[in-house]
Every structure is written in C-alpha cells, then in structure tokens.
C-alpha cells in the first residue's frame, strides 16, 4: 500500500489551555478528496487548522510527505505544498483581487506567478473581470472563488478547505462543490471540512465524522446510507 500524503496520529490540539481534539487519527492518500463532517464545535475546523500550525499542539504527530509538520512555522508550511482556504472567505479586504492572488503566490517567481494567475482566471473568469476591484466589496461567492484561487496559486499537493460552502446561496454552493471536485480531478489532494454533509459525502472519496474531538466514524460516500449518519447529519 502507498504511503499516505498526510498522516495524523493520536493528535491532541486546541486553543491556549483548552484541548479540542482528543487523540484523532487520519490518513490521506494522494489524490483523495477527504470530507470532515460533524456537529458544530466538534473540532472539525481545529483538525484542519492543526495541520497549518494554527492551534496549540499538545500531543501527536502530523506527517506530510513523511515530514513532521509540527516542527514548521505556519509561514513555512505553505512551502511544503499545503495550502489553506479559511472559513468565512477571509480574503484580504483592502487588497484588489489581483493583489490577493499575488499574495497567494508570495514565494513564487514573477513569471510563475503571472502564469498561475492566468490559470486561476481561466478557472474563475469572474475574477479576471474584477481583477482591479477591492476584494472586500466582492459578493460572498466571488470571495470564496478568490479564496480558493489564492490558495491554488501555490499549486499545492494538499488543499485544505474550511467550510467552503458556509453562508453561500444554494446555486453558488453547487458551483463551489463542482469546482472542488474539478480541482481534485486535476490531481490536487483535497481535505475539506463541511457542514453540508449531504454534498460533502456526495463528492468525497473518504469521510471522517468528528464528534466531541474524537473520530466517530470513517468511511466512503456509503456513510450516507448509515442510519445514524442519516439521522444526525442528513436530516433523517
């Protein structure tokens, strides 16, 4: 069996002295689309943020391509090939769309950056149209596209998304899920925290259910057929 791209073992993390995750294990194979679902406050976002060193680390290992990510500072992790799309579409409000993408490719050579921007504009034509607009004034859907586009500037091996559909209208949600699926099909491994369990289970190759900081279930899209999952996360 192939070595996983990301392996999380017995991870305990949280914020300051508060422990949120109580020893979780996850394994992400290259090319997978992983969905993390669970109730509010269960620690889903904490799991993704832990990969990026945005939490307090108590115990456990996060190995990416066999490197211990907990040894790296947040700004160094992106260079290892991991990119992050935060919850709430946190684009840089005062920067233009194009400047946001420039920052997404902060460590890249000018030529590479130009070429990648063109690719992002191809993926999200609306961003090209609005390239000079201040990001803070874009619609929610456009900000999410920018947030994803900004992360893709690094052409990451692993893309982490925290609640990509949160606060978007159903039509834009569909577009975002389709885009995530396309990004994955194009070869990027995706790990996505999502409230919309129905959609997440529809597109994922593997799902983790986190409850109270512990892994409650692991499985493929067939998890959607389980009675408990249906009742708790898919509205019966």
């Amino acid at each position: 069996m192939k070595r996983p791209l990301l392996k999380i073992s017995n991870l305990e993390t949280g914020y300051d002295n508060l422990k949120v995750l109580h020893g979780i294990d996850m394994s992400v194979q290259e090319g997978a689309l992983i969905a993390i679902i669970g109730p509010n406050g269960s620690g889903k976002s904490t799991a993704v943020k832990s990969v990026f060193g945005l939490t307090t680390h108590f115990k456990g290992k996060i190995r990416f391509q066999n490197k211990d990510l907990s040894k790296y500072k947040t700004h160094e992790i992106v260079r290892q090939g991991v990119a992050y799309v935060p919850q709430g579409r946190l684009v840089f409000d005062s920067l233009s769309v194009e400047e946001n993408l420039d920052i997404g490719g902060y460590n890249l050579e000018t030529e590479t950056k130009k070429e990648r921007k063109q690719r992002i504009f191809k993926l999200f034509p609306i961003l090209k149209e609005k390239r000079k607009h201040q990001a803070g004034f874009l619609s929610g859907g456009q900000q999410q596209m920018l947030s994803i586009g900004r992360a893709l500037m690094q052409e990451p091996k692993l893309l982490l998304l925290d609640e990509p559909s949160l606060g978007l209208d159903p039509k834009t949600q569909q577009l975002i899920f389709k885009t995530i699926k396309d990004i994955n099909k194009a070869g990027t491994t995706v790990m996505m925290v999502e409230q919309n369990a129905r959609q997440a289970l529809k597109i994922c190759s593997k799902a983790y259910i986190i409850e109270q900081g512990r892994i409650a279930a692991v499985g493929g899209p067939s998890l959607a057929k389980q009675k408990k999952v249906k009742e708790l996360y898919l509205g019966g």
Binding site: T74, E76, L90, D93, D102, I103, Y106
Partner: peptide, 18 residues
Amino acid sequence: KALRATSDNTVIAATMGI
C-alpha cells in the same frame, strides 16, 4: 502588498507564506 495583507489579517497572511 504583504504588509497590507498582514495588516488585514495576520493569521491568513502567515498561511500564505508571509
């Protein structure tokens, strides 16, 4: 631009490699 991005959101700026 990196200074402006950091001023907007320090945490997200760090995740961009700044």
